[in-house]
Design a protein around this nucleic acid. Sequence first.
DNA 1: CGACCATTTGATATGGATCAAGCGATGTGG
DNA 2: CCACATCGCTTGATCCATATCAAATGGTCG
Lengths: 230, 230
Amino acid sequence: MFTQTTVHQAPLHKSFERGPQLPASKPSYLPKNPIELMGAAMPFKSGEEIYGEKEQAEYFYKVLDGCVRTYKMLNDGRRQIGAFYFAGDTFGLEAGDEHTASAEAIGDCKVLVIKRSPVVALAARNSDVARHLWTLTASELSRAQEHMMLLIKTAQERVAGFLLDMARRLSGNDEIDLPMSRQDIADYLGLTIETVSRTLTQFEQAATISVPTSRRIIVRRRGTLLRLNS
Amino acid sequence: MFTQTTVHQAPLHKSFERGPQLPASKPSYLPKNPIELMGAAMPFKSGEEIYGEKEQAEYFYKVLDGCVRTYKMLNDGRRQIGAFYFAGDTFGLEAGDEHTASAEAIGDCKVLVIKRSPVVALAARNSDVARHLWTLTASELSRAQEHMMLLIKTAQERVAGFLLDMARRLSGNDEIDLPMSRQDIADYLGLTIETVSRTLTQFEQAATISVPTSRRIIVRRRGTLLRLNS
DNA sequence: CGACCATTTGATATGGATCAAGCGATGTGG
DNA sequence: CCACATCGCTTGATCCATATCAAATGGTCG
Protein backbone atom coordinates (compact mmCIF):
# COMPACT_ATOMS: atom_id res chain seq x y z
CA MET A 1 0.00 0.00 0.00
CA PHE A 2 2.63 2.55 0.92
CA THR A 3 5.21 3.53 -1.62
CA GLN A 4 8.15 3.66 0.76
CA THR A 5 9.38 4.22 4.32
CA THR A 6 8.43 2.09 7.26
CA VAL A 7 5.98 2.26 10.07
CA HIS A 8 7.45 3.21 13.41
CA GLN A 9 5.91 3.51 16.80
CA ALA A 10 6.13 6.64 18.95
CA PRO A 11 9.55 7.81 20.23
CA LEU A 12 10.94 5.71 23.05
CA HIS A 13 11.44 8.10 25.85
CA LYS A 14 12.32 11.64 26.56
CA SER A 15 14.25 13.21 29.35
CA PHE A 16 14.84 16.67 28.07
CA GLU A 17 12.87 18.15 30.95
CA ARG A 18 15.90 17.96 33.19
CA GLY A 19 17.35 20.84 31.18
CA PRO A 20 20.91 21.63 30.12
CA GLN A 21 23.73 20.67 32.45
CA LEU A 22 27.48 20.96 32.19
CA PRO A 23 29.14 17.90 30.70
CA ALA A 24 31.46 15.70 32.75
CA SER A 25 33.98 15.25 29.95
CA LYS A 26 35.45 17.69 27.45
CA PRO A 27 33.69 17.69 24.07
CA SER A 28 35.76 17.09 20.92
CA TYR A 29 34.44 20.28 19.38
CA LEU A 30 35.29 23.63 20.98
CA PRO A 31 32.83 26.51 20.62
CA LYS A 32 34.28 29.83 19.58
CA ASN A 33 31.71 32.39 18.49
CA PRO A 34 29.59 34.53 20.83
CA ILE A 35 26.42 32.59 20.12
CA GLU A 36 27.96 29.32 21.14
CA LEU A 37 29.32 30.72 24.36
CA MET A 38 25.69 31.18 25.39
CA GLY A 39 25.09 27.42 25.39
CA ALA A 40 25.68 24.46 27.65
CA ALA A 41 26.89 21.04 26.55
CA MET A 42 24.45 18.26 27.22
CA PRO A 43 24.79 14.51 26.76
CA PHE A 44 22.08 12.42 25.12
CA LYS A 45 21.86 8.66 25.17
CA SER A 46 21.37 6.58 22.06
CA GLY A 47 17.87 7.03 20.68
CA GLU A 48 16.98 9.74 23.16
CA GLU A 49 14.67 12.49 21.97
CA ILE A 50 16.22 15.96 21.90
CA TYR A 51 13.01 17.73 20.97
CA GLY A 52 9.68 16.85 19.41
CA GLU A 53 7.80 18.28 16.45
CA LYS A 54 5.33 21.00 17.44
CA GLU A 55 7.10 21.55 20.75
CA GLN A 56 7.94 25.06 21.77
CA ALA A 57 11.33 25.86 20.23
CA GLU A 58 13.25 27.21 23.22
CA TYR A 59 16.75 26.28 22.10
CA PHE A 60 19.10 26.08 19.18
CA TYR A 61 21.42 23.08 19.02
CA LYS A 62 24.89 22.27 17.80
CA VAL A 63 26.34 18.78 17.69
CA LEU A 64 29.58 18.57 19.69
CA ASP A 65 30.12 14.86 19.36
CA GLY A 66 28.16 12.00 17.83
CA CYS A 67 25.26 12.20 15.44
CA VAL A 68 21.67 13.46 15.45
CA ARG A 69 18.73 12.77 13.15
CA THR A 70 15.74 15.04 12.58
CA TYR A 71 12.54 13.56 11.23
CA LYS A 72 8.85 14.04 10.64
CA MET A 73 6.24 11.32 10.89
CA LEU A 74 2.93 10.85 9.12
CA ASN A 75 -0.13 9.90 11.15
CA ASP A 76 0.22 6.25 10.27
CA GLY A 77 3.84 6.00 11.35
CA ARG A 78 5.75 6.47 8.12
CA ARG A 79 8.89 8.37 8.96
CA GLN A 80 10.99 10.69 6.84
CA ILE A 81 14.42 11.61 8.16
CA GLY A 82 15.10 15.19 7.15
CA ALA A 83 18.79 15.30 7.93
CA PHE A 84 21.71 13.78 9.79
CA TYR A 85 23.83 16.19 11.81
CA PHE A 86 27.45 15.53 12.80
CA ALA A 87 29.96 17.32 15.03
CA GLY A 88 29.98 21.01 14.18
CA ASP A 89 26.51 21.01 12.56
CA THR A 90 23.80 23.32 13.89
CA PHE A 91 20.16 22.26 13.92
CA GLY A 92 16.77 23.28 15.26
CA LEU A 93 16.84 26.88 14.04
CA GLU A 94 13.32 27.42 12.84
CA ALA A 95 12.33 31.08 13.08
CA GLY A 96 8.83 30.21 14.26
CA ASP A 97 8.22 29.30 17.85
CA GLU A 98 7.53 25.61 17.26
CA HIS A 99 9.89 22.93 16.03
CA THR A 100 8.91 21.73 12.57
CA ALA A 101 10.51 18.31 13.09
CA SER A 102 11.67 16.03 15.89
CA ALA A 103 15.31 15.37 16.77
CA GLU A 104 16.90 12.28 18.30
CA ALA A 105 20.39 11.16 19.22
CA ILE A 106 21.89 8.43 17.04
CA GLY A 107 24.15 6.64 19.46
CA ASP A 108 25.33 8.48 22.56
CA CYS A 109 26.20 12.05 21.73
CA LYS A 110 26.90 15.52 23.10
CA VAL A 111 24.98 18.53 22.00
CA LEU A 112 25.50 22.20 22.72
CA VAL A 113 22.14 23.56 23.81
CA ILE A 114 21.70 27.29 23.31
CA LYS A 115 18.77 29.26 24.66
CA ARG A 116 17.05 31.09 21.84
CA SER A 117 15.74 34.20 23.54
CA PRO A 118 19.12 35.78 24.36
CA VAL A 119 20.43 34.92 20.89
CA VAL A 120 17.41 36.44 19.21
CA ALA A 121 17.76 39.47 21.47
CA LEU A 122 21.43 39.73 20.59
CA ALA A 123 20.59 39.42 16.89
CA ALA A 124 18.42 42.51 17.24
CA ARG A 125 21.52 44.50 18.22
CA ASN A 126 24.29 42.65 16.43
CA SER A 127 23.78 42.34 12.71
CA ASP A 128 26.49 39.70 12.39
CA VAL A 129 24.51 37.43 14.67
CA ALA A 130 21.33 38.16 12.74
CA ARG A 131 23.09 37.45 9.47
CA HIS A 132 24.44 34.21 10.90
CA LEU A 133 20.97 33.00 11.84
CA TRP A 134 19.74 33.83 8.37
CA THR A 135 22.70 32.16 6.66
CA LEU A 136 22.39 28.98 8.67
CA THR A 137 18.68 28.77 7.95
CA ALA A 138 19.24 29.41 4.26
CA SER A 139 21.80 26.64 4.02
CA GLU A 140 19.35 24.29 5.70
CA LEU A 141 16.86 25.32 3.03
CA SER A 142 19.38 24.58 0.34
CA ARG A 143 20.09 21.21 1.88
CA ALA A 144 16.38 20.40 2.00
CA GLN A 145 16.01 21.31 -1.67
CA GLU A 146 18.91 19.03 -2.52
CA HIS A 147 17.31 16.28 -0.44
CA MET A 148 14.10 16.65 -2.44
CA MET A 149 16.15 15.96 -5.57
CA LEU A 150 17.36 12.72 -3.99
CA LEU A 151 13.78 11.63 -3.47
CA ILE A 152 12.94 11.67 -7.18
CA LYS A 153 15.90 9.51 -8.17
CA THR A 154 16.27 5.74 -8.61
CA ALA A 155 17.35 3.60 -5.68
CA GLN A 156 20.89 3.29 -7.01
CA GLU A 157 21.19 7.02 -7.47
CA ARG A 158 19.88 7.71 -3.97
CA VAL A 159 22.27 5.29 -2.32
CA ALA A 160 25.20 6.53 -4.43
CA GLY A 161 24.41 10.12 -3.47
CA PHE A 162 24.09 9.15 0.16
CA LEU A 163 27.46 7.39 0.21
CA LEU A 164 29.21 10.32 -1.44
CA ASP A 165 27.65 12.73 1.03
CA MET A 166 28.63 10.58 4.00
CA ALA A 167 32.18 10.08 2.68
CA ARG A 168 32.57 13.83 2.36
CA ARG A 169 31.07 14.74 5.69
CA LEU A 170 32.23 11.87 7.90
CA SER A 171 35.72 11.12 6.70
CA GLY A 172 36.90 13.26 3.84
CA ASN A 173 38.45 10.14 2.36
CA ASP A 174 36.81 6.99 1.03
CA GLU A 175 36.41 5.08 4.29
CA ILE A 176 33.03 5.60 5.88
CA ASP A 177 32.00 4.56 9.37
CA LEU A 178 28.27 4.96 9.37
CA PRO A 179 26.76 5.99 12.69
CA MET A 180 23.22 5.16 11.58
CA SER A 181 21.30 1.94 10.95
CA ARG A 182 19.97 0.68 7.65
CA GLN A 183 16.50 1.72 8.81
CA ASP A 184 17.73 5.29 9.30
CA ILE A 185 19.31 5.29 5.85
CA ALA A 186 16.13 3.88 4.33
CA ASP A 187 13.96 6.53 5.98
CA TYR A 188 16.37 9.23 4.86
CA LEU A 189 16.33 8.03 1.26
CA GLY A 190 12.63 7.18 1.06
CA LEU A 191 13.36 3.49 0.46
CA THR A 192 12.95 0.26 2.46
CA ILE A 193 15.81 -1.37 4.34
CA GLU A 194 15.63 -4.28 1.92
CA THR A 195 16.20 -2.02 -1.06
CA VAL A 196 19.06 -0.20 0.67
CA SER A 197 20.66 -3.51 1.55
CA ARG A 198 20.24 -4.96 -1.93
CA THR A 199 21.62 -1.82 -3.54
CA LEU A 200 24.71 -1.92 -1.33
CA THR A 201 25.15 -5.57 -2.25
CA GLN A 202 24.91 -4.67 -5.95
CA PHE A 203 27.55 -1.98 -5.52
CA GLU A 204 29.77 -4.41 -3.70
CA GLN A 205 29.37 -7.05 -6.41
CA ALA A 206 30.27 -4.43 -8.99
CA ALA A 207 33.40 -3.67 -6.93
CA THR A 208 32.23 -0.09 -6.52
CA ILE A 209 32.39 -0.36 -2.73
CA SER A 210 33.47 -2.81 -0.03
CA VAL A 211 31.34 -3.49 3.02
CA PRO A 212 33.68 -5.14 5.56
CA THR A 213 31.08 -4.76 8.29
CA SER A 214 27.57 -3.47 7.91
CA ARG A 215 28.45 -0.12 9.45
CA ARG A 216 31.69 0.28 7.55
CA ILE A 217 31.80 1.08 3.84
CA ILE A 218 34.82 1.71 1.68
CA VAL A 219 34.40 3.49 -1.63
CA ARG A 220 36.49 1.77 -4.28
CA ARG A 221 35.27 3.52 -7.40
CA ARG A 222 34.21 7.01 -6.60
CA GLY A 223 33.75 7.73 -10.31
CA THR A 224 31.04 5.12 -10.60
CA LEU A 225 29.15 6.64 -7.69
CA LEU A 226 29.61 10.15 -9.07
CA ARG A 227 28.23 9.05 -12.41
CA LEU A 228 25.18 7.55 -10.74
CA ASN A 229 24.73 10.69 -8.68
CA SER A 230 23.75 12.46 -11.96
CA MET B 1 14.42 3.45 -15.86
CA PHE B 2 13.54 6.60 -13.97
CA THR B 3 11.21 6.40 -11.04
CA GLN B 4 9.29 9.58 -11.77
CA THR B 5 9.34 13.06 -13.30
CA THR B 6 9.89 13.76 -16.96
CA VAL B 7 12.71 14.83 -19.18
CA HIS B 8 12.67 18.46 -20.21
CA GLN B 9 14.91 20.45 -22.46
CA ALA B 10 16.67 23.62 -21.42
CA PRO B 11 14.61 26.76 -20.54
CA LEU B 12 13.12 28.50 -23.55
CA HIS B 13 14.49 31.98 -23.41
CA LYS B 14 15.50 34.65 -21.03
CA SER B 15 15.20 38.37 -21.19
CA PHE B 16 16.03 39.36 -17.66
CA GLU B 17 19.03 41.34 -18.85
CA ARG B 18 16.86 44.29 -19.74
CA GLY B 19 16.45 44.90 -16.01
CA PRO B 20 13.51 46.12 -13.92
CA GLN B 21 11.18 48.66 -15.46
CA LEU B 22 8.03 50.30 -14.23
CA PRO B 23 4.87 48.47 -15.20
CA ALA B 24 2.34 50.02 -17.54
CA SER B 25 -0.67 48.84 -15.56
CA LYS B 26 -1.39 48.84 -11.84
CA PRO B 27 -0.61 45.53 -10.12
CA SER B 28 -3.32 43.83 -8.09
CA TYR B 29 -1.06 43.63 -5.07
CA LEU B 30 0.12 46.84 -3.40
CA PRO B 31 3.48 46.86 -1.62
CA LYS B 32 3.54 48.36 1.84
CA ASN B 33 6.66 47.59 3.84
CA PRO B 34 10.01 49.38 3.50
CA ILE B 35 11.66 46.46 1.75
CA GLU B 36 9.07 46.34 -0.97
CA LEU B 37 9.33 50.04 -1.63
CA MET B 38 12.87 49.33 -2.77
CA GLY B 39 11.66 47.24 -5.70
CA ALA B 40 10.28 47.76 -9.19
CA ALA B 41 7.42 45.85 -10.74
CA MET B 42 8.35 43.87 -13.81
CA PRO B 43 6.23 41.86 -16.23
CA PHE B 44 7.20 38.38 -17.38
CA LYS B 45 5.66 36.50 -20.24
CA SER B 46 4.39 32.97 -19.96
CA GLY B 47 7.26 30.53 -19.56
CA GLU B 48 9.86 33.27 -19.30
CA GLU B 49 12.83 32.65 -17.05
CA ILE B 50 13.11 34.98 -14.09
CA TYR B 51 16.45 33.67 -12.93
CA GLY B 52 18.53 30.53 -13.36
CA GLU B 53 20.11 28.14 -10.89
CA LYS B 54 23.72 29.05 -10.06
CA GLU B 55 23.23 32.59 -11.30
CA GLN B 56 24.38 35.44 -9.16
CA ALA B 57 21.50 36.27 -6.81
CA GLU B 58 21.17 40.03 -7.24
CA TYR B 59 17.49 40.38 -6.44
CA PHE B 60 14.69 39.19 -4.19
CA TYR B 61 11.28 38.71 -5.79
CA LYS B 62 7.66 39.01 -4.83
CA VAL B 63 4.77 37.92 -7.01
CA LEU B 64 2.37 40.79 -7.66
CA ASP B 65 0.12 39.00 -10.07
CA GLY B 66 0.11 35.59 -11.70
CA CYS B 67 2.13 32.55 -10.73
CA VAL B 68 5.78 31.52 -10.63
CA ARG B 69 7.44 28.12 -10.37
CA THR B 70 10.91 27.39 -9.03
CA TYR B 71 12.65 24.19 -10.04
CA LYS B 72 15.87 22.27 -10.17
CA MET B 73 16.89 19.93 -12.94
CA LEU B 74 19.08 16.85 -12.96
CA ASN B 75 21.73 16.46 -15.66
CA ASP B 76 19.53 14.21 -17.72
CA GLY B 77 16.58 16.59 -17.72
CA ARG B 78 14.41 15.28 -14.91
CA ARG B 79 12.81 18.31 -13.30
CA GLN B 80 11.60 18.82 -9.75
CA ILE B 81 9.42 21.84 -9.11
CA GLY B 82 10.26 23.12 -5.65
CA ALA B 83 7.34 25.47 -5.21
CA PHE B 84 4.58 27.48 -6.83
CA TYR B 85 4.34 31.13 -5.82
CA PHE B 86 1.18 33.21 -6.10
CA ALA B 87 0.39 36.91 -5.59
CA GLY B 88 1.89 38.05 -2.32
CA ASP B 89 4.47 35.26 -2.08
CA THR B 90 8.16 36.10 -1.85
CA PHE B 91 10.79 33.93 -3.50
CA GLY B 92 14.47 33.83 -4.34
CA LEU B 93 15.79 34.71 -0.89
CA GLU B 94 18.77 32.45 -0.56
CA ALA B 95 21.39 33.92 1.79
CA GLY B 96 24.26 32.76 -0.39
CA ASP B 97 25.18 34.71 -3.49
CA GLU B 98 23.92 32.15 -6.00
CA HIS B 99 20.38 31.05 -6.69
CA THR B 100 19.86 27.44 -5.64
CA ALA B 101 17.04 26.92 -8.14
CA SER B 102 15.63 28.44 -11.31
CA ALA B 103 12.42 30.46 -11.51
CA GLU B 104 9.97 30.85 -14.39
CA ALA B 105 6.69 32.61 -15.00
CA ILE B 106 3.63 30.37 -15.31
CA GLY B 107 1.44 32.35 -17.64
CA ASP B 108 2.00 36.08 -17.94
CA CYS B 109 2.72 37.60 -14.58
CA LYS B 110 4.04 40.61 -12.69
CA VAL B 111 6.83 40.37 -10.20
CA LEU B 112 8.25 42.92 -7.82
CA VAL B 113 12.01 42.82 -8.26
CA ILE B 114 14.00 44.06 -5.28
CA LYS B 115 17.73 44.64 -5.35
CA ARG B 116 19.40 42.62 -2.60
CA SER B 117 22.33 44.80 -1.67
CA PRO B 118 20.37 47.73 -0.22
CA VAL B 119 18.05 45.35 1.60
CA VAL B 120 20.95 43.43 3.11
CA ALA B 121 22.58 46.73 4.03
CA LEU B 122 19.34 47.89 5.61
CA ALA B 123 19.07 44.63 7.51
CA ALA B 124 22.45 45.36 9.09
CA ARG B 125 20.93 48.49 10.66
CA ASN B 126 17.28 47.56 11.04
CA SER B 127 16.71 44.40 13.03
CA ASP B 128 13.09 44.14 11.89
CA VAL B 129 14.27 43.81 8.31
CA ALA B 130 16.88 41.25 9.35
CA ARG B 131 14.28 39.30 11.25
CA HIS B 132 11.96 39.43 8.27
CA LEU B 133 14.59 37.93 5.99
CA TRP B 134 15.20 35.19 8.50
CA THR B 135 11.51 34.47 9.01
CA LEU B 136 10.75 34.29 5.31
CA THR B 137 13.67 31.94 4.75
CA ALA B 138 12.63 29.77 7.69
CA SER B 139 9.10 29.44 6.36
CA GLU B 140 10.50 28.42 3.00
CA LEU B 141 12.49 25.79 4.86
CA SER B 142 9.36 24.59 6.58
CA ARG B 143 7.54 24.44 3.29
CA ALA B 144 10.37 22.42 1.74
CA GLN B 145 10.25 19.95 4.63
CA GLU B 146 6.52 19.56 4.14
CA HIS B 147 7.09 19.04 0.42
CA MET B 148 9.53 16.24 1.21
CA MET B 149 6.75 14.54 3.14
CA LEU B 150 4.57 14.71 0.02
CA LEU B 151 7.25 12.91 -1.96
CA ILE B 152 7.11 9.79 0.21
CA LYS B 153 3.35 9.39 -0.09
CA THR B 154 1.19 7.41 -2.51
CA ALA B 155 -0.05 9.07 -5.71
CA GLN B 156 -3.55 9.55 -4.26
CA GLU B 157 -2.15 11.16 -1.14
CA ARG B 158 0.09 13.48 -3.12
CA VAL B 159 -2.69 14.65 -5.40
CA ALA B 160 -5.12 15.06 -2.49
CA GLY B 161 -2.54 17.11 -0.60
CA PHE B 162 -1.87 19.20 -3.66
CA LEU B 163 -5.55 19.95 -4.24
CA LEU B 164 -6.09 20.95 -0.61
CA ASP B 165 -3.06 23.22 -0.73
CA MET B 166 -4.19 24.86 -3.97
CA ALA B 167 -7.75 25.28 -2.70
CA ARG B 168 -6.44 27.03 0.38
CA ARG B 169 -3.95 29.25 -1.39
CA LEU B 170 -5.77 30.04 -4.63
CA SER B 171 -9.36 30.42 -3.63
CA GLY B 172 -10.06 29.87 0.04
CA ASN B 173 -13.16 27.98 -1.00
CA ASP B 174 -13.54 24.72 -2.89
CA GLU B 175 -13.30 26.02 -6.44
CA ILE B 176 -9.82 25.88 -7.84
CA ASP B 177 -8.60 27.49 -11.04
CA LEU B 178 -5.23 25.95 -11.62
CA PRO B 179 -2.69 28.21 -13.28
CA MET B 180 -0.29 25.35 -14.00
CA SER B 181 -0.28 22.44 -16.44
CA ARG B 182 -0.52 18.75 -15.62
CA GLN B 183 3.20 18.51 -16.37
CA ASP B 184 3.92 21.16 -13.74
CA ILE B 185 1.76 19.34 -11.23
CA ALA B 186 3.46 16.05 -12.06
CA ASP B 187 6.93 17.54 -11.62
CA TYR B 188 5.86 19.14 -8.35
CA LEU B 189 4.50 15.87 -7.00
CA GLY B 190 7.23 13.60 -8.36
CA LEU B 191 4.75 11.69 -10.55
CA THR B 192 4.07 11.43 -14.29
CA ILE B 193 1.31 13.39 -16.03
CA GLU B 194 -0.48 10.13 -16.72
CA THR B 195 -0.60 9.25 -13.04
CA VAL B 196 -1.78 12.73 -12.11
CA SER B 197 -4.49 12.55 -14.75
CA ARG B 198 -5.62 9.08 -13.75
CA THR B 199 -5.73 10.02 -10.09
CA LEU B 200 -7.88 13.05 -10.83
CA THR B 201 -10.17 10.82 -12.87
CA GLN B 202 -10.42 8.40 -9.94
CA PHE B 203 -11.32 11.24 -7.60
CA GLU B 204 -13.92 12.46 -10.04
CA GLN B 205 -15.46 9.00 -10.40
CA ALA B 206 -15.59 8.74 -6.62
CA ALA B 207 -17.44 12.10 -6.64
CA THR B 208 -14.67 13.57 -4.48
CA ILE B 209 -14.06 16.32 -7.03
CA SER B 210 -15.46 17.65 -10.29
CA VAL B 211 -13.24 18.60 -13.20
CA PRO B 212 -15.42 20.77 -15.48
CA THR B 213 -12.37 21.78 -17.52
CA SER B 214 -8.84 20.48 -17.12
CA ARG B 215 -7.70 23.67 -15.39
CA ARG B 216 -10.73 23.93 -13.14
CA ILE B 217 -11.34 21.63 -10.21
CA ILE B 218 -14.12 21.73 -7.68
CA VAL B 219 -13.70 19.95 -4.38
CA ARG B 220 -16.92 18.12 -3.52
CA ARG B 221 -15.83 16.06 -0.54
CA ARG B 222 -13.11 17.84 1.31
CA GLY B 223 -13.24 15.24 4.06
CA THR B 224 -12.20 12.50 1.68
CA LEU B 225 -9.20 14.52 0.55
CA LEU B 226 -8.31 15.38 4.13
CA ARG B 227 -8.42 11.74 5.10
CA LEU B 228 -6.10 10.85 2.22
CA ASN B 229 -3.78 13.67 3.17
CA SER B 230 -2.89 11.64 6.32
C1' DC C 1 -11.30 23.30 -41.40
C1' DG C 2 -6.99 21.54 -40.04
C1' DA C 3 -2.75 21.57 -37.24
C1' DC C 4 -1.16 21.55 -32.82
C1' DC C 5 -0.77 20.85 -28.10
C1' DA C 6 -2.52 19.35 -23.64
C1' DT C 7 -4.94 15.90 -21.56
C1' DT C 8 -7.04 11.48 -21.00
C1' DT C 9 -7.35 6.63 -21.56
C1' DG C 10 -5.61 1.97 -22.53
C1' DA C 11 -2.18 -1.88 -22.46
C1' DT C 12 1.95 -3.47 -20.68
C1' DA C 13 6.40 -3.44 -18.16
C1' DT C 14 9.13 -2.90 -14.15
C1' DG C 15 11.45 -1.06 -9.96
C1' DG C 16 10.94 -1.28 -5.58
C1' DA C 17 7.66 -2.87 -1.83
C1' DT C 18 6.10 -6.64 0.70
C1' DC C 19 6.25 -11.04 2.83
C1' DA C 20 9.12 -14.51 4.51
C1' DA C 21 13.16 -16.91 5.73
C1' DG C 22 18.09 -17.23 6.75
C1' DC C 23 22.32 -15.52 8.78
C1' DG C 24 25.73 -13.51 11.72
C1' DA C 25 27.00 -10.84 15.70
C1' DT C 26 26.05 -9.80 20.45
C1' DG C 27 24.51 -10.73 24.82
C1' DT C 28 22.43 -13.64 28.70
C1' DG C 29 21.68 -17.25 31.82
C1' DG C 30 22.62 -21.84 33.22
C1' DC D 1 31.94 -21.95 28.12
C1' DC D 2 28.18 -23.10 25.59
C1' DA D 3 23.07 -23.23 24.29
C1' DC D 4 19.96 -19.97 23.03
C1' DA D 5 17.33 -15.73 22.45
C1' DT D 6 17.63 -11.27 20.20
C1' DC D 7 18.56 -7.87 16.92
C1' DG D 8 20.15 -5.92 12.71
C1' DC D 9 21.04 -7.12 8.28
C1' DT D 10 20.84 -9.84 4.01
C1' DT D 11 18.70 -12.70 0.64
C1' DG D 12 14.83 -14.84 -1.87
C1' DA D 13 10.12 -15.03 -3.99
C1' DT D 14 6.24 -12.60 -5.29
C1' DC D 15 3.20 -8.62 -5.84
C1' DC D 16 1.69 -4.17 -7.04
C1' DA D 17 1.74 0.89 -7.77
C1' DT D 18 3.34 3.64 -10.88
C1' DA D 19 6.16 4.23 -15.09
C1' DT D 20 6.29 3.61 -19.89
C1' DC D 21 4.61 3.24 -24.46
C1' DA D 22 0.90 4.15 -27.47
C1' DA D 23 -3.29 5.88 -29.15
C1' DA D 24 -7.59 8.52 -28.81
C1' DT D 25 -9.84 12.81 -27.53
C1' DG D 26 -10.59 17.54 -27.10
C1' DG D 27 -9.73 22.34 -26.92
C1' DT D 28 -7.38 26.43 -29.22
C1' DC D 29 -5.69 29.25 -32.75
C1' DG D 30 -4.64 30.63 -37.38
